[in-house]
Design a protein around this nucleic acid. Structure first.
Lengths: 345, 345
DNA sequence: GATATTTTTGAATGCGTATGCATTGTTTGC
DNA sequence: GCAAACAATGCATACGCATTCAAAAATATC
């Protein structure tokens, strides 16, 4: 009863409303046993005092913080901005808060995880970086579920949701084959990321099945960024002994955009007239007029939903789902950078 | 002493290390009175138990959460992605956490603020949306500082940091005048945002001082987005009775990019040969080959630093600085979309 | 070597809320 | 009309840590 100067607490509200502190707590806890009349009395008093329940204190007793951690790398790729936006929107709708961590590309996320643990988050979503098995088990030991978004760590206990990258690579290869491309250049992303590796794998396999020779497929590294792909392209084509390929696969859209600009604006190579090009992701930026990129769509909303489903934030008592590897299928989007093959009619 | 099954607490660590719980707390609190020897003993025990201090519980007693809320609108504008990234990086360096809220463009941020208050954040950074004076005072009453980033709410008690938008508008007008432009089109952003209005104001004033007639300045609305500006441009130029201006001012870079693509790819108008163009912000995307946009740079890092300075998270006892309106000066960046005027030599 | 001083330590308490338990008030069933 | 079931309420306590206060240990002073 010594609420003197500081923040207003549930006791203050209780005093004004003429009820006990418990009643105040119950008034703000949906589904708890309280008469509608007293609830109104409490809410009225709370309004008068500008009272807002202290979630920190409440987390302490409920052991639920309603906070979800989102660990992001590579914000230079708009794809992840859209992913973040989607998660943020969905979680806000559910009345949950999003704690953001940005991790430099290629850096360990362990440090971020440690901070996350301190805040007793209800779940962790990881869209970047490596994750040590030690961290996975630290989370799981505490009952904190963790889901890898568009990442896959073989042998890890952590669950993950990803697009079927291999199938996507295959689909794009198929499109190029149908359009008659014989020689290929692949602009890869972060070589440590399975995402990039899987796409390349599916792509290559399908090409080889389609009769393309290994020697007609070249790979260069584009650093997962527009700028990286742009300069890698120029560097590659500037080398004297290089033969111009028929088709280029940018392992993500932002790199494909960089490749396209390098080709058309610096090297005088027209897309798709001189050379076909495809990306991966289907980010809105790739749909814009200068690009109108043929690509493979990752269904972000669906992937986000699956991720949240695995987290099952609503059922904290249900055991954590370990080692799930949910693969979501995407779909090829035909636009202008790969000529649509003739109808067989 | 009844730590049975659940999370490991400071009591568990204390027991293993053979010290009191107070000692454990002190071992993790920099600057507190503890012998180095016992500290090591505690840290060793903590490591063995995978103990991580519970920040939620600690916030309850210290009344500091080490969480800063960042309220974002319009993530479709890459400028704000870079802003978010800068804040995130800086705050992480300081060992603080970032709670993200995304608010639909034009929507009230009051709802987000309410959530923020529940989590007893140490400060609020608002980069979007309107803010009611009621919310400002609710924050201030609780001792939570709030800073508007690139927003200005006249008569508000909330402090703000912004680029000198009016000066920026003037500088761009000056560049156009020097390049000899006589008639103008302005593609504006969100009409309720002072940011956009101020830029237009400075721009117009300087033009009029430079002898341009009001009737030679037209405004259209570009919705602060690439797509909005793109289609607004096409719509505008498609109308029969419209005279082609000498110069276009896109009130931010992303809109200028949309305008440029519409002009060159849809309307067959070349920049800068047929028409000059400038943006505002200097986002990295505008530096890319297809655009190479002349623009006015907002010094993000400096603005971020100023914002954090006003928040003065390190000195929670210092009173909140109210009603500050810190204006940071930017600088004109000449690139390819406005011809550099002849030297007077 | 004895006292004054400083450093280190532990016991106890508070932070603001949720909730088990007991109590009171109200409704239902027969 | 009385017992039984139920709904609503308050009391007391726990959540995990930081911190005050007093006691203990280590160190300095003469």
């Amino acid at each position: 009863m010594k609420r003197s100067s500081t923040r207003t607490t549930s006791f203050d509200v209780a005093a004004l409303a003429g009820v006990s502190q418990s009643a105040v707590s119950r008034a703000f806890t949906p589904g708890s046993s309280i008469a509608e009349e007293t609830r109104q009395k409490v809410l009225e008093a709370a309004r008068k005092l500008n009272y807002v329940p202290n979630s920190i204190a409440s987390s302490l007793t409920t052991k639920r913080s309603n906070i979800v951690a989102l660990i992001l790398g590579n914000l230079a790729n708009p794809f992840y901005v859209h992913v973040m936006h989607a998660f943020s929107r969905k979680l806000q709708e559910q009345g949950r808060q999003v704690l953001i961590f940005t991790v430099d590309a290629g850096a360990e996320s362990d440090d971020a995880i440690l901070h996350v643990l301190k805040y007793q988050v209800d779940g962790v979503i990881l869209t970047s970086a490596q994750l040590s098995t030690r961290m996975t088990s630290m989370c799981h030991d505490r009952g904190i579920p963790i889901v890898l978004f568009n990442r896959y760590i073989p042998g890890s206990d952590a669950s993950g949701v990803r697009c079927d990258n291999t199938a996507g690579g295959r689909a794009l290869a198929e499109a190029f084959l149908a359009a008659g491309a014989k020689s290929y250049l692949i602009v890869t992303g972060d070589p440590t990321a399975t995402t990039s590796a899987d796409r390349v794998l599916g792509f290559m396999n399908r090409l080889i099945e389609g009769g393309i020779k290994r020697s007609d497929i070249t790979q260069i590294e584009g650093n997962s960024s527009y700028e990286g792909a742009f300069s890698a392209t120029i560097r590659h084509f500037s080398s004297a002994d290089v033969k111009r390929p028929d088709a280029i696969f940018g392992v993500n859209d932002i790199m494909a955009m960089g490749v396209m600009d390098a080709l058309q604006l610096r090297l005088g190579i027209k897309v798709p007239d001189d050379l076909m090009l495809a990306g991966f992701d289907d980010i809105p930026e790739g749909r814009r007029a200068p690009y109108h990129l043929t690509t493979f769509r990752q269904p972000i909303d669906q992937m986000v939903n699956e991720t949240l489903a695995i987290l099952h934030l609503d059922e904290p008592t249900r055991p954590i789902e370990r080692g799930i590897d949910r693969r979501i299928s995407g779909r090829l989007i035909w636009r202008s950078t790969v000529p649509v093959p003739q109808d067989n009619g």
